[in-house]
Amino acid sequence: MASKIVEVHPGIYEIFLPLPMRPTIINVYLVDCHGAWALIDTGMNSPESIGTLEDTFRQVGIELEDLDVLIATHHHIDHFGASGQIRSRSHATTHIHKLEAARADRMLFFGRMGPADRPESRPFFEKHGFPIEEHSASGMRPAWMGTQMYFPVTEPDRFIDDGDVIEVGDRKFEVIWTPGHAPGHNVIFLRKEKVMIVGDHLLPKITPHVGIYPDAGEAANPLGDFIESQKKVQRFDAELILPAHGGVYHDHRHRANQIIEHHRCREDEMLDLVRGKPQTAFEVAQQVFGGEERPIFHVMAATFETLAHLEHARIEGRARRIERDNRVLFQTL
């Protein structure tokens, strides 16, 4: 069986943890700070993932309980889902951005709600053309919501923000705030080592979901934030890029520019569709992402990713928004 832990830089270990969904693996990073240990991201709180963490920690001579510091790139289940268990066992000082801690708390709250849908989001779905009436509330939720697989810390020991430096032993973890995929997403940079732990921000083969959700607020422009964050990371000199999914790589500037181009092309495709014919985000998503039979959760994500592109185009003056019969339509200018 292939090893689940690889030393990718002296004292920096990549650990491959299993996920029950695609992508099927998340990479978390264990850092020997010479006198202390830090972990960046946690995996999910499943027996398989926790077992893999325990086994791999032992391969470098420590127990899970020996961990000193935990740093999260963002609150999503594959990144922060096991933080509650890990902190309760290790008492590791836990760091996450304030916006992400609030979202983790809200995910737990939604998980505890009954089968009735989140009432405040129904008008949002409807106005963007999503056929919410056809889908039950349970079908709109990821399968793990409300289960023990998501066991996040909601009151971290320290909120982190752009420019913070977390000193652990002889290591310095710099926080680079990279909103887009999540509003409080952070990249963790080890300047001396020229190592960048990028979470989901700079994946080598796939691009992370960027969407506008009901709680985003009217001024939200997550795609604009994401593109700015892709430009921002290019100001840092890194030689080794450690992503949460996919293999380690070297040229983050090249990849960041590719990701920017990818979204520009996708936006062009969407604007092509609404040039002569105003449409809702849902209608455009059905054409760009395909209308074939898919889990409704994916259809929702496609709709809200489309909305992020169309809103970005509107803010940059390439599209306009038309409100008609309680529907929001977009049209190319």
Binding site: R264, C265, D268, E269, D272, L273, R275, G276, K277
Partner: peptide, 14 residues
């Protein structure tokens, strides 16, 4: 959805 030229441009851009 608009023109032959746009179809070529979208393919080349992608």
């Amino acid at each position: 959805a608009n023109s032959v030229e746009d179809a070529v441009q979208l393919a080349i851009s992608r």
